[in-house]
Design a protein around this nucleic acid. Structure first.
Lengths: 341, 341
DNA sequence: ACTATGATTCGAACCGGTTCGATTCGACGA
DNA sequence: TCGTCGAATCGAACCGGTTCGAATCATAGT
């Protein structure tokens, strides 16, 4: 494999000249630059990443720390990953993907060995044990998911409070008086998944303020349990006319459940979920929903991270905590409650 | 950040001695080794990955080239990625993930710059344009998916021929005489997705040999089209008693379709699919299926790749082309055809 | 004719590891 | 007592880039 020394020799110049000719960091005469570029092309020269990293202390690699948790919804995870890898590529970075369940240890190894210029953390828990490691690292970090303490990192997340409010307001505006909210399993909350209670509490609060009855429950994250639970819920609250879903498995199971009960949305029941449009398309979910935009969050995290890496911001720019406003995708599954309610 | 020079100084030895003490590649007295290790620990020393790669020409990173194609089924892709990252971690490697649509260019850049010790290609097409680049690279490669030409690479894939045969044989054994096979969209075939016709042709052949009628069609990869197509198919072939699905979207859509037609499996129709158990669990698919084992294929590819990287095989060990035998997961959706057929 | 100037290019050092050959030193056998 | 041997350690070179300061050279100014 050709080195820059080979290129320099072929072009009849010093190594440093070849380097400058290729990088453009110093003025080089047109003639020499052309010679160097030609030699590089002919030898098929590509810089050795390790050597360059050693010399520049820059790897142009971003670490992506995902955690494949048992209850995490897989398709959404892939969308995060996709958003991150794509925007990284657009900005000239590669992605080092770690799914090590030993998150803190993996993060420490990757940052200490300087394999990456920065790090994106997915699935951030309220009290995420990777955060102390990240703060101690020399590289900047961007999070997808809101932890309790945001100091020293840039944070991106869907505005779950506003999402909860919006869902309730929407159905309230249509005249509904009794709602059911199905959240993710409770142990997701216990594990630190703050988004669950952020949406839930906001929904409960809004419902109370509007004088609505809201039955807020935790649902399983897989079939067939969630199907049974949905049946039980509808049995238990026959007066409820609105169903809010913050649980992908429940959304996936609901069409069958409605069929089995011979119900349809929005005629018998108004339904509104919170999941990604991609997910909705893949499974043709007919329910209006708050778009959770995982790919967009991934892109935002990478963009901000790269700005920090490349110090486009003034040295100590304040860290950002940005909430993406929920957008309601109307698929026509909500309407005024059936007469008689 | 501490370098090995700092460690050596703190321990009062030469850099080389510190290196040997930590790597164990030469005999070092117990006393000195202990001193070095202690110094390393106290200084929080971690070797610089770039420097080590430069010195050893080894990165302990594996490149993972995925392609997020519009019709590829997302959850399956995540399972491949998961299998690859997990087994890589177990073997002491990190994963550099690329989803660049410019596959050949990305592969060339990654291998030429020696960021990786080897490469796993997902989604390999019959005439994959990444293969020439891979063969020209100095690093070994492992594929998931069967190309037309396997020279110079290790290949892993599900045995789609055997899968097609097994599905047909299974229903034949139960007494069915007329079957429908729904494959992925035809443009997946045109793009080089050989697995589609491999299963399809084998199924057609087996059906012919057994004297069965088999209606083999291509289906859409998303709802709601695929739902409509399934309805049309069942309308068109009222005498068919068995349905074979090599199309995840069709499997996901079928429960609703059956409901709408007031049919149930296996009483009215025997159904057998080809998808992963994980997928089946997430969506509670009640259909027996050939397990496509994406995570297992990912693991196998990485294991073999690492053996090549570490030259555990004799220098020029023949390249392997391994087909995973299909395993039928019985979910009780097949039985003898209803009487009268 | 001589120097100041600016444009190019060169040489050497450095990044932080690994590895090879040489050196040191104590123990042991003759 | 001396040479030999083996174990432990050291020093230097090397991997392949980047970057800084110095050197070269032609041109322009006086």
């Amino acid at each position: 494999m050709a080195t820059i020394g080979d290129v320099a020799r072929a072009a009849g110049v010093a190594r440093s000249t070849a380097s400058y000719a290729l990088s453009g960091k110093r003025a080089i005469s047109d003639e020499v630059r052309a010679r160097v570029q030609r030699a590089a092309r002919e030898l098929g020269y590509t810089a050795n990443a390790g050597a360059r990293a050693l010399a520049t202390s820059q790897t142009r690699v971003i670490g992506l720390l995902a955690q494949f948790l048992p209850d995490e919804f897989a398709p959404a995870m892939l969308q995060y990953i996709q958003g991150v890898t794509e925007s990284a590529r657009d900005l000239g970075y590669d992605i080092l993907l770690s799914s090590d369940p030993e998150g803190p240890a993996a993060l420490k190894r990757i940052t200490d060995s300087r394999m990456v210029d920065g790090v994106v953390l997915l699935n951030v828990a309220e009290d995420d044990d990777r955060l102390p490691v990240l703060r101690a690292a020399r590289q900047p970090g961007a999070l997808v998911g809101l932890p309790a303490d945001c100091t020293g990192v840039d944070v991106f997340d869907l505005d779950f409070e506003e999402s909860g409010r919006a869902m309730v307001e929407h159905l309230h505006g249509l005249g509904h008086r009794e709602l059911i909210l199905v959240s993710q399993p409770e142990h997701v909350v216990e594990r630190g998944g703050a988004y669950v209670w952020r949406l839930r509490n906001a929904a409960i609060e809004t419902a109370a303020a509007r004088g609505l009855a809201l039955h807020a429950v935790y649902g399983s994250s897989a079939q067939p349990e969630i199907g049974r639970e949905l049946h039980a819920l509808l049995d238990a609250h026959p007066e409820a006319t609105g169903l809010l879903l913050n649980n992908e498995a429940a959304a996936a199971a609901l069409p069958t459940v409605l069929h089995q009960r011979n119900l349809s949305a929005p005629d018998d029941l108004s339904v509104i979920g919170r999941y990604s449009d991609e997910f909705a398309r893949t499974f043709s979910l007919p329910f209006s929903s708050i778009e959770s935009a995982p790919d967009r969050l991934g892109r935002m995290a990478v963009r901000q991270l790269v700005r920090r890496i490349e110090k486009q911001d003034p040295e100590d720019a304040p860290h950002v905590v940005r909430f993406v406003s929920p957008e309601l995708v109307d698929r026509g599954s909500t309407a005024a409650p059936p007469v008689g309610h």
